[in-house]
Design a protein around this nucleic acid. Structure first.
Lengths: 249, 249
DNA sequence: CAGGTTTCTGCGTGTTTGTGCAGGAATTTG
DNA sequence: CAAATTCCTGCACAAACACGCAGAAACCTG
């Protein structure tokens, strides 16, 4: 990996997460900690980030601080993303839906990963495009402006032609009785096609989505190959799902 | 292998992968590392790539780095965009390529316009999405990271299924003898398909692109239904083109 | 076409840059 | 304050680089 690429990657990470640890960077990029430190120092001299003990901070971080729904939920999605990433290995074909949890997954992909990612979500695709080593395949069709995702029969047909190794789906609502449910008809059609096409179906869900129901059904619990949450696997909330035969991570 | 061929190959590789190592190039092309270095240096001086220690990077890699083409060229593009907009009316199906001139067109669309826009360029699509009244259709396929556009046989097949009312294409190089030329093979394939599919083909070109040639041919002058530049139609630069039968606006 | 000129390429020289490692100083943390 | 990180300094080594030179090819040009 070239020095400039590395620095661009670091900068990208800093701007996304507002912070970065040199230790985690050095394991992601696979270079010595010294190199990372020198990079951070250089970038700091150029004023592109703020170096601190143990890592670096985004410049914008300073004034903005914590207005949003917060680090809490963000960290949860980080945890989920990290669990999901372990399932991806080089050479895989990965199909993903849209949504903030998938975004977090896209942001956290290790830079040396070489795989092919397929999606119809514009924000997610943008994230994939920043990654140095992954191939990106965009599913085309009419764009639904509110969900920023391509929807329609062409998109569904295209998905059905594929046989991705694994499929990651964000979750809107998950319930022991009603399974996975959602509130956008067109998105549901897409998700159904994705589930059907994929060898392995993984749902990503933050805990607050568990035990809630939405009007339109996506699939049953049996169709889930793996459910990833930020919770520990022996958390009591998950117990009924495990008993119902759902694999949980 | 000739020098020009070699440099074209290098450029192609850089545009394809966003990065290139001089070591891998020299084993691919089978010339000494010095020659590669000299080529890279030359291309860097022409501003066609960014040279770094160990290889080179695509220009689009740092989206930050376009310190050139200032307000002047921007205003020119505004003029072009305004001329182009007059050709669009409500209910039309409009097919567009990517590029900065098309971006300017996308940004300048009047908010009350109700039409359907089709493109495979991610930045352009993002612009369309912000528009309140237009429908957006995204052409899917593998994303070429450097041109930020979907390329491949699927995209071409999809374009060929369409019959848009009008098609706006950015121009890389225009010459009285060689017609429209470009430097990215995959993009050229797309443009050819777009030209074939559309009822009316409009090329947008800033004056500095006129009378220049690139290695790969897109189409002849006869295939152009209308050429839009920022120049006045009786500007002497345009005269030979008008005499050759090109419609100019 | 002969002779000269320019361009292109590869090689050898020494120099610069990028990276990792070791050991001691500085810092955070409990 | 003690342990653990993290940081800095200097050093070593390999890879990449710049420069000059020489032979070969291409290209004028009268």
């Amino acid at each position: 990996m070239l020095k400039k690429e590395r620095q661009a990657y670091i900068l990208h990470q800093v701007n996304l997460h507002n912070r970065v640890l040199s230790s985690s960077l050095c394991s992601e990029i696979n270079v010595s900690e010294d190199t990372i430190r020198r990079d951070l120092q250089e970038l700091a001299e150029e004023g592109k980030l703020i170096k601190v003990h143990g890592g670096a901070l985004s410049h914008s971080f300073n004034q903005v601080s914590f207005p949003n729904e917060g680090v809490y939920s963000q960290n949860n999605k980080q945890v989920i993303a990290n669990k999901a990433i372990e399932l991806i290995s080089n050479g895989m074909f990965v199909l993903t839906s849209g949504g903030t949890t998938i975004m977090e997954l896209a942001r956290s992909l290790p830079p040396q990963l070489k795989a092919t990612f397929i999606s119809g979500s514009i924000p997610v695709i943008l994230e994939y495009m920043h990654h140095p080593n992954i191939e990106v395949i965009l599913i085309g069709d009419k764009i639904s402006k509110n969900s920023k995702i391509t929807v329609g029969s062409d998109a569904i047909a295209k998905i059905k032609q594929m046989k991705p190794d694994i499929c990651f789906l964000g979750t809107n609502a998950l319930d022991i009785e009603h399974g996975i449910t959602d509130n956008d008809w067109e998105v549901v059609q897409l998700k159904k096609a994705m589930i059907e096409a994929s060898k392995k179906v993984v749902f990503l869900s933050i805990a607050e989505k568990i035990n809630s129901v939405q009007p339109i059904k996506v699939c049953d619990l049996e169709d889930i190959d793996l459910l990833i949450t930020e919770l520990d696997t022996n958390n009591p909330i998950l117990k009924p799902y495990i008993q119902a035969g759902v694999n949980v991570a």
